[in-house]
Every structure is written in structure tokens, then in C-alpha cells.
Design a protein around this nucleic acid. Sequence first.
DNA 1: TGCTCAAACGATAATGATTCTCAATATAGA
DNA 2: TCTATATTGAGAATCATTATCGTTTGAGCA
Lengths: 141, 141
Amino acid sequence: MDSEELRNAGLKVTIPRLKILSLLENSAERHMTAETVYRLLAEGGEVIGLATVYRALAQFEAAGLITRHHFDSGQTVYELERGPHHDHIVCIRCGRVEEFYDKVIEERQREIAASLGFTLSDHALTLYGECNSPDCPGHQG
Amino acid sequence: MDSEELRNAGLKVTIPRLKILSLLENSAERHMTAETVYRLLAEGGEVIGLATVYRALAQFEAAGLITRHHFDSGQTVYELERGPHHDHIVCIRCGRVEEFYDKVIEERQREIAASLGFTLSDHALTLYGECNSPDCPGHQG
DNA sequence: TGCTCAAACGATAATGATTCTCAATATAGA
DNA sequence: TCTATATTGAGAATCATTATCGTTTGAGCA
């Protein structure tokens, strides 16, 4: 249960935190901005202060429950830490985000960091391009 | 000359733009925030409005003269587009930025995008870790 | 179950980065 | 040089995020 996750993370179990965690777990969209979390909760009748949303997201991130990404588009999104590590590809037209994992790239990153004298602790790889989904506004045909 | 670059970019040649471009070309530090550009110019006796700095950087980026990066640390930096493409590794302690290029990673990215149905137009890869420079505050020994 | 207190909440003020507004000024071309 | 237009600078406005602070709530215990 979500209560467990919060307790394990050393966080007090509160209604707002449970609602936010639940939203992150049950939404079709895995990548959300703080604003989006706030809005979706409000639309679902759960009005939680925006400050609380930001606080909770920061705490969840510190606890390792979620991950934060700064895309070059400028938007900051949060995503539930679930399953193995992966990177992202973002459509520059419709904003759709897909995930991928590539073993070769992961390995090369470690080697590169080592060769430059760095102890690698994290990385961010995001590809940008045009998706060819029929729903994408840039889709031809 | 810089005037050429501006003209080629379709931008009117003005004093502020020349100063900013010159700073980017002649500074030891290749990665700067808008604030930094503003401050360095001011320290050099060239007081250029902050709004103008932001505008010029945005125009230079649109013209392809410089590139903007949003690091996960939150800072937005600009860098002169010079020489071949490269990615970055940032020290999480001292903020030092190094560049690198890896052919294997570049190729894998294209393949991945294609396999996901995207037409790749750009990418951002940043590694985060601890550098082992003697000047880094986290350096041991 | 009720009590107590620190932690968390929500509203809103504050902050920091970036963009916009607009009157004054500078540039490119005739 | 003159003119039309683009650019500049100062400061207001905006946007995302964080801090403040009085009120409320959760967790442990009698």
C-alpha cells in the first residue's frame, strides 16, 4: 500500500501525500509537472495546496520514490521511479514522452566518465524529434 | 569578424550584440548563464541591460550561433556553437563542466529514435558526477 | 479513546529567472 | 544626411518555485 511506501521513506502518512502518490501511480501519463499534479487533483475534487504539491514532490524525490527531469524545452517533470532505469525521447511538436533503455549507451557513459576522471553518479539523456503518431499535430497525411 | 556572423544570421549589427558575442568567443569559460554574461560585461565596464542580454542570447540561439542547455541542477547555460557536436559532464560539487564526444553513443541514439518511430532532430546528454580535481571542494587528500 | 506536540498543511508573500512594455536611441539604406 | 524601422534599457509583469506563518493533523502514549 502507499502508506507503506511513505513510512519506509521516513515520511509521515498524510492525506495530501497519499493523494499525490496515488495520482502518480494511477495516471496514464507518467510524466507530470507540479502544476499538472495540482490541476489533476483539483479536477478530481481533491484540492491540495500548490505549495504542498511542490513540497511533497521534493520529498518524494529526496526519498527516491520519484525522479525529476529538466527538459531543454524548459519544463520540469516528475515521474514515478518504477522498474529499471530508462531515458526519454520527447516529441518537439506534441510533447509526447516515450522511454527507452540502451545497454550500450549506459556502458559507454561509465567509461567516458572514468576516462575524464569523474565518478559518475547520475546522467540525463533526452532525445528530441518528431514522432509520427497520427495524433501529432505535425503528422503528414 | 563578428559583424559578419551577425549579418549572416540576419541580425542587425549593434554594439551590445557585438560585445556579447565577443565575450562568448573570448572567455575561458565556455558555458555561461545569462546572469554571468551580464555580470562579466559589467565588470569589464560594458553595462548592457539584462533584458538585452536575454534577447541577444535568444536570437543567437535561434540563429544557431549558440546552444542552450538546461542542466538538471536547474541552471540554464549558453555556449558558443563551435567545432563538432559534443555532450557534457558536470561536477555535482563544483559545477565544472567538461565536454566529450562519443561516436558509439551518437550512433545508438539515431538507431533508438528510428526504432521508436521518431525523426531525431536533437538530443541532450549530460553526465553528473564528482570530478577529482584538486580544486573541487569535495576532493579528498 | 483522548491528549500532546512536532510535523504538515494551505494561503499567500517572497524570490529568482525570464519576458514584456514602451519611450528613447541607433542602424541600414536611400 | 534623412527616414523608417529595429534595438535598447529601465522597470513592470509574469511564471515557476520556495519561504513564512498561523492553523490543522498524525503518531505515540496514558
